[in-house]
Write a protein that binds this DNA or RNA. Structure first.
Length: 407
DNA sequence: ATAAGCTTGCGTACCACAAAGGTAG
DNA sequence: CCCTACCTTTGTGGTACGCAAGCTT
C-alpha cells in the first residue's frame, strides 16, 4: 500500500502533479485537474513506487516498478546487479485522460482503477498532451495512435547504466516510434510546450548526427526556479528525508572529501534562499523541467547558467560541476552516446557526478547555520523596538525574555 | 479580453553590541 | 616570538517595507 492521496487522503496515490506538488489518486487527479484550463495544463506522471514521494521517470521492466530518477540511479547504478535492467521512460500527461486512456499510455501499469469520466473533461484525451516533447495530439498529425507511440516510446532496453540508449537510433526509426527527449514539465518549468516544439519526425535521424543540437529548435527558455518545492518537487523536509536515506549515507560514510576541494567554501554557505541548490542540478527534479532535463542540452546549458544562483555567466564549468551538475549536462556533451568507447567514459563521468552530488547532499544543511552561538544567545535576549535592537536602557517594545509584549 | 485592485510570498534593511579578527607597539 | 591594547568587522533575530507574481473583481 503506497502513500495516500494528498487530496482525499483515502485512496492510494498514484500520480504526481509537480505543479501542485501533490500525490493524487486517479479520481482526485481528474477532479482537481478538470477544474479549469490552467489546472488541465498541469503535467502529471506516475508516482515513484520506491520512495512514493517523487515523480517516476522510468519503469523498470524487470522489477516491474516505476522509479524516480534518484531511485533509478540508486537501484540501477553501475556495478549493481540491477544495472542492466531494461527500463522504459514514463511520460507525463496533462488534460483529463480517462482510466482507459491512461491504461493505453501506461500499458505496463496493471492496476489503473476505473475512474468515472469527469463532466468537465468531456474532451478527454483530446485535451491530453504528452509533455515529453511538447508534442500534443493537437500538434501531431498522426493523431492518437502516434500519441500512444510516444507514450510507449523510448524502450530503454539498451540503456547503459547512465540511462543512455545505446541503440536508440535503430530502435526508434525501425519501430516507427517517435523517440523524444525525456519529459519536461511544462507547467512546473518555464519550458513552454507551446514554444518547445521539437521538430522531430520519425524519419529524421537526429540522434545519429553531430548536428543533434541543431535539430532541437527550442526557444531559449527561462529556467529560473521559483521556489524550493517547485525545484525539488517536495518540501525541504521531505527532501532531506529523501536524501537522509540510510543507503545513501552509508554509501558515503567512509568517503573523505579530497583536500583542497575548490568548492569547499561554497559548501559552507547555507542554502536558505530560493536560490537553486546546486544539488538540484544533478537530478533537477521539478527544476522547471523534469529531472532528466529533457530540454536540449545546449539550451539547458545556456539557460541554467543564467538561472543558477551564484553562478554567473563567467562561472566556469568547474563551478557547475562543483555544484553537482553533471558536466555531461552542462558542457554540452550529449546526454547519451552511441555505443562505443565513449560510453564508458560517460558512465564514469556520470558516476563522478553522482558521487559529488551525493557527497554534497550529505553535507548540505538547509536550515540556517549559526556560526556563533554566543551571538545568537545575545541576540535572543536583546531588547528590540519593531524588531530592531535598541540600546540598553532605552525604552523597548519587545523583550524576548518576556512572554508578552511590553507595549 | 483587459485593467485595476487585492493578496500573498519573498528578500532585505535596520538596529545594538559582543565576539572575532587584524594590526601595531 | 609572544603578549597586550586598540580598532574594525562580523553576525545575530524580529519587524517593517518594497517588490513581484498571482489571483480576483
Amino acid at each position: 500500500m503506497g502513500a495516500l492521496c494528498d487530496f482525499c487522503g483515502e485512496q492510494r496515490s498514484m500520480v504526481y502533479c509537480r505543479s501542485d506538488a501533490a500525490s493524487l489518486c486517479l479520481s482526485c487527479d481528474r477532479n482537481v485537474h478538470s477544474a479549469n484550463a490552467l489546472s488541465r495544463r498541469h503535467t502529471r506522471t506516475l508516482l515513484c513506487d520506491r520512495c512514493v514521494s517523487q515523480p517516476a521517470m522510468v519503469r523498470c521492466l524487470v522489477e516491474n516498478v516505476s522509479l524516480c530518477q534518484n531511485c533509478d540511479w540508486n537501484g540501477h547504478s553501475a556495478g549493481s546487479s540491477a544495472a542492466g535492467h531494461k527500463r522504459q521512460t514514463i511520460n507525463c500527461y496533462s488534460g483529463c485522460p480517462s482510466s482507459s486512456e491512461l491504461s493505453k499510455i501506461w500499458a505496463f501499469v496493471s492496476d489503473i482503477p476505473n475512474v468515472a469520466p469527469e463532466p468537465n473533461c468531456e474532451q478527454g484525451i483530446s485535451m491530453m498532451s504528452i509533455s515529453d516533447s511538447g508534442v500534443s495530439n493537437q500538434d501531431n498529425a498522426a493523431g492518437n495512435s502516434s500519441l500512444l507511440d510516444i507514450a510507449s516510446a523510448t524502450l530503454m532496453s539498451d540503456l547503459d547504466t547512465a540511462g543512455k540508449p545505446k541503440s536508440l537510433i535503430g530502435s526508434s526509426s525501425e519501430a516507427g516510434v517517435n523517440l523524444l527527449p525525456l519529459a519536461t514539465d511544462q507547467t512546473a518549468g518555464s519550458v513552454d510546450s507551446t514554444t518547445a516544439k521539437v521538430p522531430y519526425t520519425a524519419d529524421q535521424d537526429m540522434f545519429s548526427k553531430d548536428s543533434i543540437y541543431e535539430d532541437f529548435c527550442v526557444d531559449d527558455v527561462d529556467l529560473s526556479f521559483e521556489n524550493y518545492e517547485e525545484l525539488f518537487g517536495t518540501s525541504h523536509i521531505q527532501t532531506e528525508q529523501l536524501f537522509d536515506d540510510a543507503g545513501i549515507d552509508s554509501y558515503f560514510e567512509t568517503k573523505e572529501m579530497p583536500a583542497g576541494n575548490s568548492d569547499e567554501p561554497k559548501l559552507m554557505q547555507p542554502v536558505t534562499s530560493n536560490a537553486v541548490s546546486a544539488d538540484s542540478g544533478m537530478s533537477i527534479p521539478g527544476a522547471k523541467g523534469d529531472s532528466s532535463l529533457c530540454i536540449p542540452v545546449r539550451q539547458a546549458r545556456s539557460s541554467i547558467s543564467l538561472s543558477f544562483s551564484g553562478l554567473t555567466g563567467e562561472s566556469s564549468a568547474g563551478d557547475y560541476q562543483d555544484c553537482g551538475v553533471s558536466p555531461v549536462l552542462l558542457m554540452g556533451e550529449p546526454p547519451w552516446h552511441p555505443p562505443g568507447p565513449e560510453g564508458s567514459f560517460a558512465g564514469a563521468t556520470r558516476d563522478d557526478a553522482i558521487t559529488r552530488y551525493k557527497e554534497k547532499k550529505k553535507r548540505r544543511k538547509f536550515d540556517k547555520k549559526i556560526r556563533y552561538a554566543s551571538r545568537k544567545a545575545r541576540a535572543d535576549v536583546r531588547k528590540r523596538v519593531k524588531g530592531r535592537f535598541v540600546k540598553a536602557g532605552e525604552a523597548y517594545d519587545y523583550d524576548p525574555l518576556c512572554e508578552t509584549r511590553s507595549y
